[in-house]
């Protein structure tokens, strides 16, 4: 059965967000797992928060709640290349 999470970009800084039980989270481990129907409804609801999030969409995930597609995994975990790792999260 297809499982999905809902993701978007935070308006103020563009950071990746996930629909969580309490609003939105930057941590995928907080993400709610939906059926496709529930996810579609959550995407629609996100359009009601235009000053908070941009570009909400649903992503297929595996049983661990992680995206199936490589592109979406990169979006979750950040660039796979970290040139100046020490500075990256400074």
């Amino acid at each position: 059965m297809t499982q999905q999470i809902v993701t978007a970009s935070r308006l103020a800084d563009g950071r990746v967000l996930f629909r969580a039980p309490e609003g939105w989270s930057t941590d995928i481990h907080d993400a709610l797992v939906f059926t496709p129907e529930e996810a579609a409804a959550a995407v629609t609801r996100a359009q009601g928060e235009p000053t908070r999030v941009v570009g909400a969409y649903a992503v297929d995930v595996d049983d661990a709640g992680l995206p199936l597609l490589g592109r979406e995994r990169i979006r979750v975990f950040g660039p796979t290349v970290a040139p100046y790792a020490a500075q990256l999260e400074a």
Binding site: D13, G14, R15, P50, T51, G55, R75
Partner: peptide, 26 residues
């Protein structure tokens, strides 16, 4: 930020100023 402009209205304005919304951030 206050919602007076929608994203559809704002997007071409930010692009005119070189600001894209990419995978992880602007």
């Amino acid at each position: 930020l206050t919602g007076a402009l929608t994203e559809d209205q704002f997007r071409p304005l930010r692009l005119m100023n070189g600001l894209y919304l990419e995978m992880h951030a602007y």
